[in-house]
């Protein structure tokens, strides 16, 4: 059982632009991603907003595979700043996993 840690999102958030919670889980981004990234960005964002840190850490590969092409962001009906959010996540990995 995963325990939600509501303060985790504050560790990931890089800027005011970070708005993972605005996602309404429609799935458009997953369907449209040219890399076919299965867990990006929708599910990883949920791990972030729910504070499921171990799940986020498992997704390093995915987070760095994103092309930042913005195809998903252009089509997101909820106005989620997907690429900005992915950048925030990369910074988080830099600090947390690579310690840079």
């Amino acid at each position: 059982m995963a325990v939600a840690r509501p303060t985790f999102i504050d560790e990931v958030r890089q800027s005011e632009q970070f708005n993972a919670a605005a996602c309404m889980n429609c799935g458009v981004c997953t369907a449209i991603c040219p890399m076919g990234l299965e867990h990006l960005p929708r599910e990883i964002f949920r791990y972030v907003v729910l504070g499921m840190e171990e799940e986020v850490l498992k997704e390093q590969e995915t987070v760095f595979s994103c092309l930042l092409c913005k195809l998903c962001e252009e089509n997101c009906p909820a106005g989620v700043h997907i690429t900005e959010n992915v950048r925030s996540l990369r910074h988080y990995f830099d600090r947390k996993a690579f310690r840079i």
């Binding site: 059982m1 995963a2 325990v3 939600a4 509501p6 599910e43 949920r46 729910l50 499921m52 799940e55």
Partner: peptide
């Protein structure tokens, strides 16, 4: 919405 995972919320 999170892969059917069980979640505990404080």
């Amino acid at each position: 919405l999170t892969g059917q995972k069980e979640v505990e919320i404080p």
